[in-house]
């Protein structure tokens, strides 16, 4: 029996890799990615900034009209708003809301979207038909009117402002799972056509093995990309909701709310300290999440070098 002679085989140059798993390889690729690390650093900073930062602030989040609309100074690094509240402190408090909403809404939308999409694609038949028709209906419904109706219902039910944020996350998750579900479904449908999925059947692998070792790692990149986009769009959607008075209610701040609060010409032209900081915060966070998402996607691709 002939053996391939590897004389000219460039692959021999590759370092020998021990019996590591895809996950370990992915981790090694991830930490070698400059952008990933940058993204992680920014994200960590943002989380610390939002959740720990307020404890170091000398100010209280209470109105003090005597100090309204002050530009940045030694005392108020980012100035004050029209009610005299410290913008830096509000930026940190708003970060809690925005980050929580962004990440939690994304987790909900991924949970619903991935599982329904996977079930739809994997089992097919009437299950698929039903799930996809529901998805069509949700997709066809205009999002904003529904949100307005839901906001009204929440107000009628006298849901305390502090709890509203959880409902906001839930609503955002509910209305945005459709896109992810479709992505995952089509990914699984195309995977099912691949001969290696047929091979798992011939080999008689258990369903759990098929899903965990063969389907899931190949759907993962799609999910990561969808998740990355989801966080960014949830943060932005939340600001739209808050602007309409459906999300968090004043005085609770969120980045989106702070942005939209500076919606008159005077604030915009004369008081940039009101809207530049939340804008930068949103931008940095979204950018960092995109870096991390891209790096994760590449990390799980064995074709990428370690």
């Amino acid at each position: 029996m002939e053996r391939p002679t590897p004389t000219l085989d460039y692959r021999r140059k590759n370092k020998k890799r021990g019996g590591t798993s895809l996950w370990q390889d992915a981790f090694r690729r991830f930490i070698k990615n400059k952008y990933a690390i940058l993204g992680l650093v920014i994200l960590t900073f943002m989380i610390l900034f939002a959740f720990i930062g307020p404890y170091f602030s000398p100010h209280q989040d209470v109105p003090d009209v005597t100090k309204a609309n002050q530009p940045p100074s030694k005392e108020h690094w980012l100035g004050t708003d029209n009610l005299g509240r410290d913008v830096l402190l509000r930026l940190m408090l708003a970060g809690r809301i925005s980050l929580t909403v962004g990440i939690a809404a994304t987790l909900i939308l991924l949970l619903i979207g991935v599982s329904l999409g996977a079930i739809s694609g994997y089992y097919g038949g009437w299950v698929d038909v039903i799930i996809m028709r529901i998805a069509d209906i949700i997709y066809a419904m205009p999002g904003l009117p529904i949100l307005i109706v839901m906001g009204a219902i929440m107000s009628d039910l006298k849901i305390p402002p502090a709890h509203r944020i959880y409902y906001v996350m839930f609503i955002l998750g509910i209305i945005s799972w459709v896109g992810v579900a479709r992505l995952v479904r089509s990914q699984i449908l195309s995977l099912k056509e691949q001969e290696f999925m047929l091979a798992t059947e011939v080999l008689g692998l258990r369903d759990s093995k098929k899903i965990i070792k063969h389907l899931f790692p190949n759907v993962l990149p799609t999910v990561i990309v969808a998740g990355t986009l989801g966080v960014a769009s949830s943060i932005i959607s939340e600001s739209a909701l808050s602007f309409l008075g459906l999300g968090v209610v004043p005085p609770t701040p969120s980045w989106g709310y702070m942005l939209s609060a500076a919606n008159n010409m005077i604030d915009f032209a004369k008081r940039p300290w009101l809207w530049i900081p939340p804008g930068v915060a949103i931008m940095l966070t979204v950018l960092a999440i995109n870096f991390v998402g891209d790096a994760l996607r590449d990390a799980f691709d064995p074709r990428q070098k370690i």
Binding site: L22, Q194, P217
Partner: peptide, 28 residues
């Protein structure tokens, strides 16, 4: 299943790109 096996046509789609050869051969 182990008694009846199959070898596929397309060497590119018949192996899971995210599974090491050792796992692909040994998992069953």
């Amino acid at each position: 299943r182990p008694k009846m096996q199959m070898v596929f046509q397309d060497p590119f789609s018949s192996l899971n790109p995210r599974l090491r050869i050792g796992d692909a051969v040994g998992e069953a």
